[in-house]
């Protein structure tokens, strides 16, 4: 099986994630889109690692996972804080900085 297929899958997953982020209003779903994009990029990194025959891409994928885990913690905390004050998890309601 060609390694290019992995890259194509990664691109499809990334596009799905990006579409989710752009089109959905619910902050939790948006967050899931972000995670999907991160994991798509992880897949691409691992694939490239395999292509080049060194471990740099895999190490970088681990870094991404750690950062993603930290980001999920902070992001979910922010979403819960917003939901508590505004009784809504819609990202379109969070526009206080406008004007």
């Amino acid at each position: 099986m060609s390694l290019v297929n992995y890259l194509v899958l990664s691109a499809i997953l990334f596009s799905l994630g990006a579409t989710t982020v752009l089109l959905r209003r619910n902050a939790i779903i948006v967050f899931m889109g972000v995670e999907l994009m991160l994991n798509a990029s992880n897949l691409a990194l691992v694939t490239f690692s395999r292509m080049h025959g060194n471990l740099t891409g895999q190490v970088l994928a681990f870094f991404v996972m750690v950062v993603a885990a930290a980001e999920v913690v902070v992001g979910l905390a922010v979403i819960i804080a917003i939901f508590r004050t505004r009784k809504s998890a819609s990202v379109d309601d969070v526009n206080l900085l406008k004007s």
Binding site: D92, N95, K98
Partner: peptide
């Protein structure tokens, strides 16, 4: 130029993408 700043996170994300 103010009109560009809609305050919608998703439109910012779209423009970034």
């Amino acid at each position: 130029t103010r009109k560009i700043q809609t305050g919608f996170v998703r439109s910012y994300a779209a423009s970034m993408l």
